[in-house]
């Protein structure tokens, strides 16, 4: 039966091999004068080694089919909304992007009342903006709209 540690182990081996592949252009040097590639290659080897070690007691781990993915849709919604906000942050500026992001979380992900969500998003974002720019003297991104 496929267990979670089997998957972790396989991922580690693949990741370790990728580390070696990406380190090929880095000089390993000699033991007496280690180069920039020595430490990453050592770590790549360790990752592969620990990946194989996981196999020893993999049968004690949770069956892969039993891992609870019920929260995945929520996680994906949050991740996508956050990603869009990050992509727009420098262009849209703090107030606009963050207010829209919060509104999207409340209405899109949590199905809250549109009017309340709009009020909460706008109010909290503006308050936070003044908290950082005025009280903490930390300028926030202004974006193309200059606010």
């Amino acid at each position: 039966m496929l267990r979670s540690d089997h998957v972790t182990s396989a991922a580690c081996v693949v990741f370790g091999i990728c580390v070696f592949a990406m380190s090929t252009d880095l000089p390993t040097g000699a033991w007496s004068m280690p180069g920039a590639g020595l430490f990453p290659k050592l770590l790549g080897a360790f990752i592969i080694g620990f990946g194989f070690l996981l196999l020893i007691r993999a049968r004690d781990s949770v069956p892969f089919a039993d891992i609870d993915w019920k929260d995945l849709p929520h996680a994906l919604r949050v991740a996508v909304i956050t990603a869009v906000a990050i992509a727009c942050y420098e262009t849209g500026g703090f107030i606009l992007t963050m207010a829209l992001m919060m509104f999207a979380f409340l209405v899109g992900a949590e199905r809250k009342n549109v009017f309340r969500a709009a009020l909460y998003s706008a109010g909290v974002t503006v308050l936070t903006y003044f908290l950082f720019t005025v009280a903490l003297k930390t300028p926030l991104e202004q974006g193309l709209l200059k606010f």
Partner: peptide, 22 residues
């Protein structure tokens, strides 16, 4: 449901303001 969007906003501000790096 109202708290976590606020926390995510603080996460973004917190991380961005370290180096002003997206």
């Amino acid at each position: 449901a109202y708290l976590y969007p606020l926390v995510i906003m603080f996460c973004i501000i917190g991380v961005y303001t370290v180096n002003n790096s997206i």
